[in-house]
Amino acid sequence: MEKPLRLLVGLGNPGPEYLDTRHNAGFWLVDQFCRRHAISLTPNNKFWGLEGRWQRGTTDLRVIMPQTFMNKSGQSVAALANFYKIEPEQILVAYDELDLPPGVAKFKKGGGSGGHNGIKDIHAKLGTADFLRLRIGIGHPGDRAKVTGFVLGKPPLSERQRIQDTIDASCDAVDVLIEQDLRAAQQLLHSFKSTK
């Protein structure tokens, strides 16, 4: 039996200059999820982030957007998880994924960081990689030397639209994950293709 989801994390960098950059795809997802469920996010210095809570029926979900900058995301996630006694497998982390094209998103349980500094830090601070991930495709510049500029750049409008479509579908899938299970959520999300 799967344990219920208790924490949704969106990864990104704080500050207006990063708002529309590819690296903030995790923030975009949490923004969308919070709008959908009327969850208000407020600064919580104890957890170094913007925190919200969604309660419905048996669901009691915390939501956080760490405000620590990407490579220290684990500080925020671990502080909140430890405080509320949330186990790693009850955490879903949404983030930008270079290895998937825009218009594609995939769930993944555990595994490596794929070089993503936010995931790397969460793994280090939690002491385990056994948390759920929601990988939001942003594409790859084709050259490792260009990755930093690429993730900190803004996608062109057509790509942004495909990413947004994926985020809408991902929010549907997170709802299914909460109401049913990971397999049902994966079936829904992994069959989605942006038509843009």
Score class of each variant (00 low, 15 high):
1 M>V: 12
2 E>S: 09
3 K>D: 15
5 L>F: 10
7 L>F: 09
11 L>I: 01
11 L>E: 00
13 N>H: 04
14 P>S: 12
15 G>I: 01
16 P>T: 07
17 E>Q: 14
21 T>R: 07
21 T>V: 10
25 A>K: 11
33 F>G: 03
34 C>T: 03
36 R>I: 00
36 R>G: 03
38 A>P: 05
38 A>S: 13
39 I>W: 12
39 I>F: 09
40 S>V: 02
40 S>P: 03
42 T>R: 11
42 T>S: 15
43 P>L: 10
45 N>K: 15
48 W>F: 15
49 G>Q: 05
51 E>S: 11
53 R>E: 03
57 G>S: 05
58 T>H: 14
59 T>Y: 11
60 D>Y: 15
62 R>G: 02
64 I>E: 01
67 Q>E: 11
69 F>A: 08
71 N>C: 10
71 N>F: 06
75 Q>H: 14
75 Q>R: 14
76 S>I: 06
77 V>W: 09
82 N>K: 13
84 Y>R: 06
84 Y>D: 04
85 K>C: 08
88 P>H: 07
95 Y>L: 04
96 D>W: 00
96 D>V: 00
97 E>I: 04
98 L>V: 00
98 L>H: 00
100 L>C: 01
100 L>R: 10
101 P>D: 11
101 P>V: 14
102 P>E: 09
108 K>M: 11
108 K>W: 01
112 G>P: 04
113 S>P: 00
114 G>N: 10
119 I>G: 01
120 K>R: 15
121 D>P: 11
124 A>I: 01
125 K>Q: 12
126 L>P: 01
130 D>I: 02
131 F>W: 07
132 L>K: 12
133 R>P: 10
134 L>P: 06
135 R>K: 09
137 G>R: 07
137 G>I: 11
139 G>L: 05
141 P>C: 05
146 K>D: 13
146 K>F: 12
147 V>I: 10
147 V>Y: 09
148 T>M: 09
153 G>Q: 08
154 K>A: 14
155 P>T: 11
156 P>C: 07
158 S>F: 08
163 I>T: 07
163 I>K: 04
164 Q>K: 12
166 T>C: 03
169 A>Y: 06
171 C>T: 12
172 D>Y: 12
173 A>I: 03
177 L>N: 13
187 Q>F: 05
187 Q>W: 11
187 Q>A: 13
188 L>P: 14
189 L>I: 11
190 H>Y: 06
192 F>C: 04
192 F>P: 05
193 K>D: 10
194 S>Y: 01
